[in-house]
């Protein structure tokens, strides 16, 4: 069913195509170019070979991103379910509360966490009043993961909530009539129907978590090195654009593969999720 596109359509699409070409495709080519050249512009595989030294960094980043994604999911899923069962007014209120922290810049929110988790920070001061602590929180893996969970939680709640609020209540009533337990309802109705939302939520939390650098720098005290930190350092201070580009390229490939895998999950259920890619 081939349709000839009218000139008007082409004209309407042109700005978007141009935008995508200039700001998405061209930069991608530049990244690839830098990854396979050395400082003088000659072709080399040295940057890719150098990546072997960063296995540990990649592993830590993947591990932290997975843990953060799992925690956000555990918090967000029941929350989104109960939220979708509230009255319209309450839902609006809860939505507002979820979004509220996002009105502030991520950098400021993370900086505030620094003050909360410091050795003399708010938590340790409170503990101190009860004769406990001080606990070492800043500069630990826990602090970095907490930062990811806190910052990206809304991205998990919103897609799950959106899809859950669309689940037809009559399905649940029918299940009740037929004597299904709560767990059976969850397993056979809510979970399959909410899966596309879960997939988008996971993508929206996992991708920024695996590439973050600001959170790990501030809450990890410059001691926890994630891929994002390494890229940032290569570009900003070490002046090794080539190695930075090579690491970015591998990160992008990795993200694309994980997206593709997740899209497969969604497609198998025939719901066509994967709103992200």
């Amino acid at each position: 069913m081939k349709q000839r596109r009218s000139y008007a359509q082409v004209l309407i699409n042109a700005p978007y195509l141009l935008w995508a070409a200039i700001f998405i495709l061209v930069p991608l080519f530049i990244v690839a170019y830098y990854a396979f050249t050395d400082a003088s512009g000659a072709f080399t595989m040295a940057n890719i070979k150098e990546l072997a030294n960063y296995k540990q960094t990649f592993w830590i980043s993947i591990k932290y991103a997975l843990i953060a994604t799992a925690i956000t999911f555990v918090i967000a899923y029941p929350f989104a379910y109960f939220m979708s069962k509230k009255s319209a007014a309450k839902q609006q209120m809860m939505m507002l509360l979820v979004m509220l922290p996002m009105w502030m810049n991520l950098l400021i929110r993370t900086y505030s966490w620094m003050n909360i988790l410091e050795r003399n920070g708010i938590i340790n001061n409170l503990l101190g009043m009860m004769g406990l602590g001080p606990w070492k929180m800043i500069g630990t893996a826990g602090a970095v993961i907490l930062g990811m969970v806190y910052n990206y939680l809304p991205y998990m709640i919103l897609p799950i909530y959106t899809i859950m609020s669309k689940i037809d209540n009559s399905l649940l009533e029918a299940a009740d009539d037929l004597g299904a337990h709560s767990f059976a309802k969850l397993r056979h109705i809510i979970w399959p129907l909410s899966l596309p939302g879960v997939i988008s939520g996971i993508a929206m939390v996992f991708v920024p978590s695996i590439s973050t650098f600001y959170i790990s720098q501030k809450l990890g005290g410059g001691k926890i090195m994630l891929i994002g930190d390494t890229i940032e350092r290569q570009i900003q201070t070490a002046y090794n654009y080539n190695l930075g580009a090579a690491i970015s390229l591998v990160l992008m490939v990795f993200v694309l593969i994980s997206m593709a895998v997740m899209n497969r999950f969604a497609d198998d259920d025939g719901e066509g999720g994967g709103m992200i890619v």
Partner: peptide
């Protein structure tokens, strides 16, 4: 810069 990278990587958690 290489040595610095090594230090950072070795003691990253």
């Amino acid at each position: 810069e290489k040595l610095w990278e090594e230090i950072l990587r070795e003691f990253a958690q």
